[in-house]
């Protein structure tokens, strides 16, 4: 662990300015991921700018019926919120499927999006990793592949994004608010996190010094009939091999609306737009669920060590759709 300076910023603007101007500076909120990485010298910021007290810790109703989650709200509070449990049950379930009570109490809604991959090579400074050390090579391909991506990976990186919360956020088309050196802007979650391409060190599209200040959940009727299913190597305290956030609305036997997003399979939460398109308006049948899942996974490029994720993802999608549509009947 390298020595660092701790600063408590007075307002968002000065925090943004500090991190914008100093390439060695980083924001600190819950610290549940960053501090670990610092101990291992995977992350070596020289300055930590504490922002947790600067961003909202509240969940507010929005005039359109949606909700605004302050970036400083703990993961625990998001999961426990009555409105979220009623209107977006998959989001509450996703958060509760991740980490532990202690971590969820400390981790923030904003920070959760920005946690780094759990790829074992990223976390070991004695092995090459393009994400940690651009251009050094990818150790994961041909190595421990179990947790790697099957969708959207590049030669440079096959890491997965570890968040559960972000998968549900992607499914509901959540939008983050940021404040950065160029002012404020909003970014849909599905655009916030990115695929690795040739720049795997960039997990997201945020500019240096740009801070997430809130997350908006749009009003979404279908989300009330939703569920998050996390398939992993043990019943608790493990990252997803495959997870599915799903919401379905069926009327007269036809799929009226549907949202599907996958975790554990890509460098970002994988919104299953192809499957959603295939299902919209189609009869809610087991065959159609299978066909939609297969269409989504047609582009999967698994590695020898994670090929099982393709049938696992397909089965889990079908299983979820079946359960949700059976309940709706």
């Amino acid at each position: 662990m390298k020595p660092f300076r701790y600063e408590r910023a007075d307002d968002v603007a000065s925090a943004v300015a500090t991190v914008t101007d100093d390439p060695r500076a980083a924001f600190l909120a819950g610290g549940t991921n960053l501090v670990d990485l610092m101990k291992m010298e995977v992350a070596t910021p020289g300055v930590l700018v504490d922002v947790r007290h600067l961003v909202s810790h509240d969940i507010e109703d929005l005039p359109d019926g949606g909700l605004r989650i302050g970036a400083g709200v703990s993961n625990s509070m998001v999961a426990a919120d009555r409105r979220i449990r009623r209107l977006y049950p998959m989001l509450s379930q996703a958060i509760l499927a991740g980490a532990s009570y202690q971590l969820r109490n400390l981790a923030t809604a904003g920070g959760n999006f920005l946690q780094r991959t759990r790829c074992v090579y990223y976390r070991d400074i004695a092995t090459p990793c393009n994400k940690r050390e651009p251009g050094s090579g990818c150790s994961a391909r041909g190595g421990h592949e179990r947790d790697l991506a099957i969708l959207g990976a590049s030669e440079a990186c096959a890491a997965t994004h570890p968040s559960d919360m972000a998968v549900a956020m992607a499914a509901v088309d959540a939008v983050v608010h940021t404040q950065g050196p160029a002012g404020e802007r909003t970014i849909p979650v599905n655009e916030l996190l990115r695929l690795p391409g040739d720049e795997p060190w960039r997990d997201n599209v945020l500019e240096r010094g740009e801070l997430i200040t809130a997350v908006d959940l749009p009003p979404l009727a279908v989300a009330a009939n939703s569920r998050y299913r996390k398939v992993r190597d043990r019943a608790s305290y493990a990252f997803a091999l495959v997870s599915v956030a799903a919401a379905v609305e069926v009327a007269d036997g036809l799929v009226r609306d549907v949202r599907l997003a996958l975790g554990g399979v890509a460098h970002k939460p994988w919104r299953a737009f192809t499957a959603e398109q295939a299902l919209l308006g189609a009869p809610a049948t087991e065959e159609n669920f299978h066909a939609a899942a297969e269409a989504e996974l047609a582009g999967a490029r698994p590695l020898p060590g994670n090929a099982f994720k393709v049938p696992l993802a397909a089965n889990t999608i079908v299983s979820m759709l079946r359960a949700l549509t059976e309940e709706a009947r």
Binding site: V120, D124, A126, G143, D233, A235
Partner: peptide, 29 residues
Amino acid sequence: LHEASVIDPRFGHVVNNDLGGYHFASNAD
């Protein structure tokens, strides 16, 4: 059901060398 140390033969060490990577049964199991 859970425990397995994964050696990466290219490097020669156990790569899942923490309790996030090396699983043992949790209470829920």
